[in-house]
């Protein structure tokens, strides 16, 4: 039995998963109770749960895709554990790659057969992502007080709202900029052939972005104008799925060189 995917690894994964589910359930129940205490409508609380479920499905599938991408080298269990706790797509991929390179393995697609190399990767992926769990208990309370003071100093509801919105718009802008101008990547094999990942900004990313924005605006307008409550919850996932559907359609209908046209030459490694 492959040690990367044996019942021992599976048991460890299940313990971690149960632990994380327990923590999430604990806070969910606590917040629900507090919401009721504050007199918030039950429908608002329930709608938040429904909307969050719908919102999470697609990004969660892309996280599953990362687990699959790391599976050839590390097996399925370790990436599964790492992406269930703290990890995020880019961090775990780079941590695994760096750890493998340090152990003399230069490809993320070659199976790791040496247990010590595997243990090195495990430690590096864990240590690379654990810092916030140390910082938060020590600093979050103080940090919140500092932020509260800064907001108090601003002393103006309009400015505070604008700054809160700006912080979020700044975050979204990073992803929008990537969709508008980011460079894609490609991998060159030993025989010189290059496999492109089609992950750079191009016709498809811009079309997806525009469709998502337009569909969302139209649905929100309809929901607001006709007071359709269910549509308010479903607008975001519908807009997302429609936009992704357009990407699939473009790939099917358009000639390949147009569908996969990217504005800039990909970075080949």
């Amino acid at each position: 039995m492959d040690f990367r995917e044996d019942s021992f690894m599976l048991t460890m994964a299940l313990i971690v998963i149960v632990f994380i589910l327990g923590q999430s359930l604990f806070f969910l129940v606590k917040a629900m109770k507090q919401g009721k205490k504050l007199g918030m409508a039950k429908s608002t609380l329930n709608n938040t749960v429904i909307q969050s479920v719908l919102f999470t499905i697609t990004p969660a599938l892309s996280i599953v895709a990362t687990v699959i991408a790391l599976a050839p080298a590390l097996g399925i269990i370790l990436p599964w554990i790492r992406l269930s706790v703290i990890g995020n797509i880019s961090q775990e991929t780079s941590a695994a790659t760096a750890a493998l390179e340090a152990s003399g393995v230069h490809s993320i697609t070659v199976p790791v057969t040496d247990k010590t190399t595997f243990a090195t990767v495990m430690w590096d992926m864990t240590l690379a992502s654990s810092l916030p769990l140390l910082i938060l208990p020590l600093a979050l309370k103080r940090l919140q007080k500092g932020v509260g003071k800064a907001v108090g100093k601003a002393g103006n509801a309009k400015l505070t709202d604008a700054l809160a919105a700006a912080a979020f718009i700044g975050l979204i802008s990073a992803f929008i900029a990537k969709a508008l101008a980011g460079r894609g990547t490609g991998v060159q094999a030993a025989d010189g052939t290059v496999t492109y990942n089609y992950d750079g900004a191009g016709l498809m990313s811009v079309a997806t972005l525009i469709v998502a924005v337009v569909v969302m605006l139209i649905l929100s307008k309809i929901a607001e104008k006709h007071n359709v409550n269910w549509l308010k919850n479903f607008a975001m996932p519908i807009a997302m799925f429609t936009a992704m559907g357009v990407a699939v359609l473009m790939a099917q209908v358009l000639p390949e060189e147009i569908a996969h046209f990217e504005f800039r030459a990909p970075i080949v490694s």
């Binding site: 990004p59 992803f175 929008i176 969709a179 972005l209 969302m216 936009a243």
Partner: peptide
């Protein structure tokens, strides 16, 4: 195209 769809 998950990211452009999500953030759009």
């Amino acid at each position: 195209q998950v990211m452009p769809a999500l953030f759009g």
